[in-house]
């Protein structure tokens, strides 16, 4: 079980390999990766992610503990970056390992839904036109209701 909040990039392949390697207690590993996208204007020059040191780690620990209490998880990994990123860069990943595929999928979705609107990260998009803080979406909040 691990939560990492870091500025530096992470190597997705190496992380998943290490997470899944030698595992005999869990037949199912699910991973999700979030990537900086450039959908709005096509001229995103960079994205900056701000966070609340201390609370971020506490919030992610809490979300992870809730997932572990609810599903049969053998392991769980959350990595989330902050600082400057470019389109195509990886922002974050979650991985879950369970004896059951449904648990691994559901727990990964739960982790994503909760960390989107309960972990203190804020995204700012910087384009040639200026800087804009990304607004939260009502659907992100609504997504929590299903859990």
């Amino acid at each position: 079980m691990a939560v990492r909040v870091q500025q530096e990039p992470f190597a997705l392949g190496a992380e998943v390999e290490a997470f899944a390697a030698g595992r005999q207690d869990a037949g199912a590993v699910v991973t999700f990766t979030g990537i900086v996208r450039d959908l709005v204007s096509g001229d995103l020059s960079r994205m900056v992610i701000e966070h609340y040191p201390g609370m971020t780690e506490a919030a992610l620990d809490k979300i992870e503990a809730q997932a572990r209490a609810r599903w049969d998880l053998k392991d769980c990994l959350i990595i989330h970056r902050y600082g400057e990123m470019a389109a195509g860069d990886m922002i974050m990943m979650v991985a879950t390992a369970s004896p059951h595929r449904a648990d691994a999928f559901d727990a990964a979705e739960f982790l994503m839904d909760y960390l989107k609107s309960r972990a203190p990260f804020w995204k700012k998009e910087i384009t040639a036109q200026g800087e804009t803080w990304v607004e939260s979406k009502a659907q992100d909040e609504d997504a929590l209701a299903r859990w």
Binding site: Y52, M55, M92, K116, S117, R118, P120, F121, W133, V134
Partner: peptide, 10 residues
């Protein structure tokens, strides 16, 4: 005490 907009992680 911390004040901030709704969070936009993930």
């Amino acid at each position: 005490v911390a004040f901030f907009p709704p969070m936009t992680g993930g």
